[in-house]
Amino acid sequence: MSEEGKPKIIEECKAKFEKRIQKATTAEDIEKLRIKYLGRKGEIRSLFGHIQEIPPEKRGEFGSHINELKTYMEQKIQSVSDQLENFSLDATTEKPYCDLTLPGVPFVMGHQHPISQIIDDLLDIFRSMNFDVVSGYEIEDTFHNFDALNIHQWHPSRNPQDTFYVDPEHILRTQTSAVQIRAMENGTLPLRIVSMGRCYRRDASDATHYPVFHQIEGLVIDKNVNFCDLSGILTEMMTGVFGTRVEVRFLPSYFPFVEPGAETFISCPFCGGKGCNVCGKAGEIELGGSGMVHPQVLRNVNIDPSIYRGFAFGWGIERIAMMKYQIDDIRLFYDNNIDFLEQF
């Protein structure tokens, strides 16, 4: 028995193992060592064979010493093996040359049109504010596009110079408000809706006009809403679109379907109102019309304006996109040049 009380035979076995493992330099050496000591016919197994030679009362202690050694060996082999493996993974210098600057396989990734990206953003924003989304037809009748919105029969915007007519009673919608009229006719109150889509105005195309454009319209009809609430909703919306807190400002303006009506501005999201190239040094950006729904519009769809009030806004999505991406020509959206589309 040794000083620590371990049988000599075990001590010798451990000492030999230590010597050998120090010499092991390859995974192969380690594997041989593992088989020699831990294998089915290995040294540990043979140590257990010596148990017959031990007095019965000491057999338990002997066995536990062997198990201890076995565990030690297993750990040692594993740790040396890990060291060797790491060493061999690190030894890259000996591998064949690989030019890492060669380009990878050029997968083509698709791109969503910037307008539809803004539409998606707006849909997200308004769903988060618990609005419903409604859709309608692009060929609309003149009642829903004009009359119901207080745009009387001889209003200049109904002029064929400004509006595309399919026949005297049908036009290509000039705004998505027509959708809202239908929603008010069919919907249950209160109403919180947005609609988005293609609209048409008979504008010859230039850097800021195109006969087709997209519009987002919002409408809230409830018993207890006011102009300040409109301001709140618009602030949230534009903060969402530009990802930076903006302030909404109104100036009085006339639209037949809202009263009071307003032209709506936001503080420039790029300079925070100090004035920059995007806002033309104005510190703010004009976005479009908004206001409190005209009581006559409510009467037109059989809603009692003495009980319900509403607010509405309708803005061009192209304009928002042009601001967000700092695009200076609306026609780029409809040219569909790949060099343009792949930027978004």
Partner: peptide
Amino acid sequence: ESVDIIEELLRFTGYHNIQPSKPMY
């Protein structure tokens, strides 16, 4: 109608007084 007068009064008290609030619903 009354909203037309409301607009007149708002025009001269100032649209800048419209401060954002959150509708309750």
